[in-house]
């Protein structure tokens, strides 16, 4: 069976500096993988590379999505084919309402792929219904639809709107880049419940986090520890608890050997 996502010996440079130094990782539909690691280990680089940020240069290796290399695809094409990145720091786009943006994005995807067996633009009433349903799930006030995208949003609001976008665009591969950072305990629960509600057997999730606490809500089957651009250790859910208890130092020390 063709893997859903296959990262093979991935080396990535940012502005001439090697950040990722040979990553191998395979994700199947329905799986949640968590990537944990200390600051500066390359977690966000991996997220941005998968989404196709032009600043991140792949010097070696490959990324296969449903058996096809994504390296020649721009960020837009990757998104249209079902790859989604929830940003650690979502950008504000003043003057563009959340609703207008989401509808444009959804239509771009439908146009490109004929998703849901329908390549036509979604009607406005149909879109509204879809959006409002997902907003309720994320406990977002309906007024968010007419607010300008991330403009003046609190940290928690931004993260909830990221997951709203994920829910509406219905990707097959979602990379969540430190979605838990900057959230208080209530916001963390709401966002996590949103992710769990979107989760389905066709979706693979790569959950990038610094802390274990989000794993109290979202349950990955696989944990990987990223240290200095390499996966230093992989394991089951129990590995997260070990990290919570012992920190990263023992893995860093082991990796150094």
């Amino acid at each position: 069976m063709t893997p859903h996502l296959e990262i093979k010996n991935l080396h990535v440079q940012v502005e001439g500096k090697a950040i990722l130094k040979g990553i191998d990782l395979t994700i199947q539909p329905g799986e949640i993988h968590a990537i944990m690691g200390p600051n500066g280990s390359g977690k966000s680089t991996l997220a941005n590379t998968l989404a196709g940020h032009p600043k991140y240069v792949i010097t070696q290796g490959d990324v296969l999505y449903q058996g096809e290399s994504v390296l020649d695809w721009g960020p837009d094409e990757r998104a249209q084919k079902g790859i989604f990145l929830a940003f650690q720091y979502p950008m504000a786009i003043p003057g563009v309402t959340v609703a207008n943006f989401l509808r444009t994005a959804l239509n771009a995807k439908r146009r490109a792929t004929g998703a849901n067996g329908n390549s036509k633009s979604i009607s406005i009433p149909e879109f509204r219904k879809l959006m409002i349903k997902q907003m309720e799930l994320l406990k977002l006030d309906p007024t968010f639809a007419t607010r300008y995208l991330n403009d003046g949003f609190s940290g928690g609001e931004k993260k909830r709107v990221e997951i709203l976008q994920m829910a509406v665009l219905n990707p097959q591969l979602a990379v969540l880049d430190e979605t838990d950072s900057g959230l208080d305990i209530d916001a963390l629960r709401i966002v996590s419940e949103g992710v769990n509600a979107v989760m389905n057997p066709q979706l693979g999730i790569l959950l990038i986090t610094h802390y274990q606490r989000i794993l109290n809500y979202i349950k990955p089957q696989f944990i990987h520890v990223l240290v200095s651009g390499k996966l230093a250790m992989s394991g089951g859910p129990e590995l997260a608890l070990q990290l919570e208890e012992k920190g990263y130092d023992w893995i860093i020390a082991a990796a150094a050997k």
């Binding site: 989404a51 196709g52 940020h53 032009p54 721009g74 960020p75 837009d76 990757r78 998104a79 249209q80 989604f84 990145l85 940003f87 979502p90 950008m91 786009i93 003043p94 003057g95 563009v96 943006f101 444009t104 994005a105 771009a108 995807k109 490109a112 300008y148 995208l149 976008q165 665009l169």
Partner: peptide, 26 residues
């Protein structure tokens, strides 16, 4: 970064730039 954010949702570069400009004068 703004362009990348919009493109990562499936908008082409031209669509993304147009959206940013439209928002600017909204």
């Amino acid at each position: 970064e703004q362009l990348f954010y919009l493109m990562s949702r499936g908008l082409s570069e031209a669509e993304a730039a147009t959206m940013i400009v439209s928002g600017f004068i909204e």
